[in-house]
Design a protein around this nucleic acid. Sequence first.
DNA 1: TTTATTTATTAAACTAGTTTAATGTTTTGA
DNA 2: TCAAAACATTAAACTAGTTTAATAAATAAA
Lengths: 193, 193
Amino acid sequence: MTTLLKQNIASHISLSDTEMEGFCNLFQHKTIQKKSFLLREGEVCKFEGFVTKGLFRVYHIDKNGLEQILYFAIENWWITDIDSFTNESPSQLFIEAIEDSEVLVISKKDKEFAYSNLPKIEKLFRVMTQKTHVALQRRMIDNLSKTAESRYIEFLEKYPKLVQRLSNIQIAAYLGITNVFLSNIRKKIAVRK
Amino acid sequence: MTTLLKQNIASHISLSDTEMEGFCNLFQHKTIQKKSFLLREGEVCKFEGFVTKGLFRVYHIDKNGLEQILYFAIENWWITDIDSFTNESPSQLFIEAIEDSEVLVISKKDKEFAYSNLPKIEKLFRVMTQKTHVALQRRMIDNLSKTAESRYIEFLEKYPKLVQRLSNIQIAAYLGITNVFLSNIRKKIAVRK
DNA sequence: TTTATTTATTAAACTAGTTTAATGTTTTGA
DNA sequence: TCAAAACATTAAACTAGTTTAATAAATAAA
């Protein structure tokens, strides 16, 4: 049940078997059907989750009803709204299953218990947050400096497996463009080949 | 010398006097002249810094020579390229003083020393990285969902003091638009009032 | 199996933001 | 204190990306 989670943790820090067990036992297993939500806008995010099966999208809907996808999460990825979770504030985000999915979730209370009783967990989340932040910083630079076309091409190269599981509507919402414009880009690329 | 730093740390976590002294002693004081660089593209970022005086901009120059400002840092803010610093990879960023400035810097080695000898420091940077990440995530959503005009207005409201110390060129580079377009926005707003 | 819904594509008109260039103003530094 | 450099504004032509709408194809649901 928690094999994938243990592997994931071990890739960030090293824990003794007892520590690992102790921490992983704090997680609960959840099954989420396609098109249902782990979190909706306005709710306070009370969990941090680790995806063991399936695929999620984490997105925002702006006042014009347009959807911006912050990130996707497949097997071996973590999901939460860190803003809402840490500040206990209403979330601006939706977290929705794109496929039938399974997640291991830890509550805020149990996470705080881990912070105080297993000092290395502090390091785990320090390291993970750093990596997430680096990824977002790179994406920010890309969004500011690159055209939609090269962002699309790089997305295809970086996540070839993921792409196959997504619609073009979802890819466009991640790239920050309309699906109509993505269609134009795709045509342009196809003609070139 | 380190009063501001101590206050800043105390706003995130609580440390005993000895811990606080021990940690702050790892920092070195640096004076940086206006228009000179704490970090240039291609260099590995070997420090994490805390600004005690002045103003910096952290930016990227894309292949067309256009500048994108990731963030500004004034007194009481931290600066580093967390990507280059943690991965010891060549930086994509420039960190440049906009005014004559002063910084307290800690080296990677000393920071790691602190992580292993002062467990609460792990928490300090976990908490700080989380906050930075939340801020960047909010900005990402704004950049994807709002017009340049409303991003400009919100920037003015959020950082009124900072604005007075920046040129419009710099503000435009932060907002992700040209200074020409920012001028148009400013005119439009002025007419409305 | 049939119908309804979602998805992808195309076209055409449109708009937010860019580019280039010129002009005046302010700041800087020697 | 004077010349050079950096800055802000304006105009006009341009382009990357949007909007709306229509059509065909694929998927899901009944």
